[in-house]
């Protein structure tokens, strides 16, 4: 697997990640897990937990991890650059040439179509990931409770990650 292939793949993903870090997950799932089979779906879950609990940009953290796994440090640089470059170039173009970008009626209309699509794109891997995480009737309360705490009570996802990791650790140590 060459570094340029890594760069290309993440450039592609970065170019179509609209609406923040989680919008990248369905794209990574399609390109990196299903198409190129660089990592397993289970690994994607693990590294989402890691990327979420680290500071910095979620999407960039994920690209660094995948890049490192495939081609060590050069791979991490290639993947991170690929992920960052599309946003960088597009924003620079807007800053330099199209100041009125957000007032353009065509752009506004396209985005009214894109937004509900992005929400659905994030909903789809949620159910696939539930199978990967081996969610059954006995442990389904964990994702439901986590989602409820974050969504309804505004608990930080980092607390959820730390608590879940701790529960896993204690379970392995004392019960298993």
């Amino acid at each position: 697997m060459s570094n340029s292939k890594l760069f290309q793949t993440f450039f592609h993903i970065g170019l179509f990640t609209i609406g923040g870090g989680y919008a990248m997950i369905p794209l990574i799932e399609a390109e990196v897990v299903d198409r190129r089979q660089w990592i397993a779906r289970e690994e994607l879950l693990d590294l989402m937990a890691v990327a979420q609990s680290c500071p910095g940009v979620f999407a960039v953290n994920i690209s660094i991890f995948i890049g490192y796994k495939i081609r060590k440090t050069p791979g991490a640089i290639a993947a991170a650059l690929g992920c960052i470059l599309p946003s960088f170039l597009i924003i620079l173009a807007i800053a330099l040439f199209f100041h009125q970008f957000q007032d353009n009626p065509w752009v506004a209309r396209a985005f009214r179509g894109i937004r509900p699509c992005v929400v659905a794109l994030i909903a789809v891997p949620t159910f696939r990931m539930a199978q990967t995480a081996r969610i059954t009737w006995t442990n389904v309360w964990i994702p439901v409770l986590s989602a409820f705490l974050i969504w309804a009570l505004g608990v930080s996802p980092i607390f959820i990650i730390v608590a879940a990791g701790l529960v896993g650790f204690l379970y392995g140590k004392f019960i298993n």
């Binding site: 989680y22 997950i25 289970e42 879950l45 693990d46 989402m48 937990a49 979420q52 929400v119 994030i122 909903a123 891997p125 949620t126 990931m129 539930a130 990967t132 995480a133 081996r134 969610i135 442990n139 964990i142 994702p143 439901v144 409770l145 986590s146 989602a147 974050i150 969504w151 996802p157 959820i160 990650i161 608590a163 879940a164 990791g165 701790l166 529960v167 896993g168 650790f169 379970y171 392995g172 140590k173 298993n176």
Partner: peptide
């Protein structure tokens, strides 16, 4: 074991994002 605990929670995170 830590990751075994994390995986179901990450599914919850994704659901919350949605």
């Amino acid at each position: 074991h830590v990751f075994l605990g994390l995986r179901p929670a990450v599914v919850g995170l994704l659901a919350a994002a949605c």
